[in-house]
Design a protein around this nucleic acid. Structure first.
Length: 553
RNA sequence: UACCCCGUGGUGUAACGGUAACACAGCGCCCUUUGGAGGCGUUAUUCUUGGUUCGAAUCCAAGCGGGGUAGCCA
């Protein structure tokens, strides 16, 4: 069974456990450091579960830190959405390990600047006047900048002028003086500060020099007392620079250490902020919270629960191998949880009318139905039954294939919790579409009745026409038609044209007081959740995931 | 091209020098008033070649394959 174990095992947790054992740190402290330039997605969820998971397993703390060092890209709106999503995901699980209010790298700008001055004083950084193109070219050639050997006094003076706004954007940078010939290009005198006369979402126009990722991130970790700085694989080559910064500043122990793991890839999906932005901007989906998006907000709207997402994160594990996880594993995780908790209801998605010709006009019966066969405490409810019903058009075929167990002309089927019916007549419109089935009921076959035990292969769901509640059903499918949409060519050309189907559903009356927090199984169809756009007059149901379907349908 | 990292069934992971396991997916059977769930069974794995060792998925080397980096983005 796939349930969330208390202590997952992976190479990072092994390291943390060892550090705890040796008493290397007083307390374990991790961090989740998003840049507020977009919405969080399922890959971030993996990282959040890792960092907060470690905090809760080792009695530690996890900080949320906005890595807001690039004023051109970042917005307060993203800060808000990030906090909403993280809180939702860790609520009741690791929220008591959260390091207080969100931290902001921008709050450390003054400290970053002081450290930079220290670095210059130590002769380990210099102001460089080369253009970005020249810098690139020199770096590629392993050639030293002509400004590399400026005096400390001149560097100090120039850096102060950079800060006070004496120079235009891009005119100068502060660079670390490391090794222009290093095999690792990130050690070839990396840029630490650049000039950007731009308004920052928090510091406004106070600064016109902004720290680069490596400088800001390393020092933020140090300032916050982070012990284990966990990031994705693309930062692996930055680790020597991370350590160089700590060494160059001669920062006292305890110091943070960086570890890297593989980001999440999923079949039939894209999981990268850049691509998700495109889907939104090019209107290929409705918005960031479109239920087809693997953003946390989209998943939430679709009906995915935080606990299921956490279980999924546990199931996929943590390694350094850049794997591709089967979307079926996510779907399995969802079904596994929902099967246990979902309230069962009868809903017809694509109705056909059925008239029971031998059932008395005006007669209504109340049938007993089980709310959740997996949970006896969920109890039962009554479902009204009458002469006119709706069944799903999928459950009737005029000329069915061999293994079709449902209704056919002259055939019998059992109505869940009700009677066995037989199809006598098929009525069609001028276009030849089936519009009504006229059936007869075996009046003794009701649950508990004399012929209730008759062996009938198929059981289908139904709704009383007189009592049905009309509702909108939004049936989602995977957003892409191929397992690896970004493997070759333009991923947007593989968008599934049928990723959303809207239907007018007929729901049993018990759904009238449906709870948006609850999960429902529409029997034989799938798991559904109420969309926030629902109104008291009209419900909108999002299909989170279908029931598992056998090979062919 | 250079540097770094990673290679365990179809997929995701475990095994921490002692003879490969769990989950997903697939297939078959049983059960079923959800073609769901559940039960039982089953297919299938250590990239290659050397080396170290009594013993290697595990340690070493080379090769092959995959990924990452080479922004004044993060």
């Amino acid at each position: 069974m796939t349930t969330s174990a208390e202590r997952p095992s992976d190479f990072i947790r092994d390291i943390v456990a060892e550090d705890v054992r040796t008493g290397k740190y007083k307390q374990i402290r991790t961090r989740f450091p998003p840049e507020p330039n977009g919405y969080l997605h399922i890959g971030h969820a993996k990282s959040i579960c890792l960092n907060f998971g470690i905090a809760r397993e080792f009695a530690g703390i996890c900080n949320i830190r906005m890595d807001d060092t690039n004023p051109a890209k970042e917005e307060a709106e993203y800060v808000r959405s990030i906090m909403t999503d993280v809180h939702w995901l860790i609520d009741g699980w690791a929220d008591n390990h959260l390091g207080g209010a969100p931290f902001f790298a921008s709050d450390y700008f003054p400290k970053f600047y002081e450290y930079a001055v220290d670095l210059v004083r130590a002769g380990k950084a210099y102001v460089c006047d080369m253009t970005p193109e020249e810098t690139d070219a020199y770096r590629r050639l392993g050639k030293a900048s002509g400004f590399r050997d400026r005096s400390i006094e001149e560097n100090l003076d120039l850096f102060a002028q950079m800060k006070s706004g004496e120079f235009p954007d891009g005119a100068r940078t502060l660079r670390a003086k490391i090794d222009v010939n290093a095999a690792n290009v990130w050690l070839r005198d990396p840029v630490l500060y650049r000039i950007r006369h731009a308004s920052h979402h928090r510091t406004g126009d106070k600064w016109c020099i902004y720290p680069m990722y490596d400088w800001a991130h390393t020092l933020s970790d140090y300032i916050e007392g982070i012990t284990h700085s966990i990031c994705t694989l693309e930062f692996e080559v930055h680790r020597p620079l991370y350590n160089w910064i700590l060494d160059a500043l001669e920062l006292p122990e305890p110091r943070p250490h960086q570890y890297e793991f593989a980001r999440l890839n999923l079949t039939y999906a894209v999981v990268s902020k850049r691509k998700l932005v495109q889907l939104v901007n090019e209107k290929l989906v409705n918005d960031w919270d479109d239920p087809r998006m693997l953003t946390i907000t989209g998943l939430r709207r679709r009906g995915v629960t935080a606990s299921a997402l956490r279980t999924f994160a546990y199931n996929i594990g943590i390694t350094k191998y850049p794997s591709l996880t089967d979307m079926a594993l996510l779907e399995h995780t969802l079904r596994d949880e929902f099967n246990r908790i979902a309230t069962r209801r009868l809903v017809v998605l694509r109705p056909i009318k059925v008239v029971l010709t031998n059932y008395p006009e005006g007669k209504i019966e109340e049938l007993d139905a089980i709310n959740n066969p997996e949970d006896p405490n969920a109890g039962t409810r009554k479902i009204p039954f009458g002469r006119k019903l709706y069944i799903d058009s999928d459950d009737f075929m005029e000329t069915p294939p061999p293994k079709y167990f449902r209704l056919r002309p002259g055939g019998e089927v059992r109505l869940k919790y009700g009677y066995i019916i037989k199809c006598d007549e098929v009525l069609k419109d001028a276009a030849g579409n089936v519009i009504e089935l006229r059936c007869t009921v075996d009046l003794e076959s009701k649950s508990g009745g004399p012929t209730a035990g008759r062996k009938i292969k198929g059981t289908i769901h139904w709704v009383s026409a007189a009592h049905a509640i009309d509702a909108e059903g939004r049936l989602y499918d995977r957003l892409f038609t191929v397992p690896e949409p970004d493997a070759a060519g333009d991923f947007k050309s593989f968008i599934n044209p049928n990723s959303l189907e809207v239907v007018n559903a007929k729901c049993e009356p018990a759904l009238g007081d449906a709870n948006p927090e609850k999960r429902y199984q529409f029997e034989r169809l799938g798991y559904f959740a109420l969309d926030p756009d629902s109104t008291p007059e009209r419900q909108i149901w999002n299909r989170t995931v279908t029931l598992r379907e056998p090979g062919q349908k």
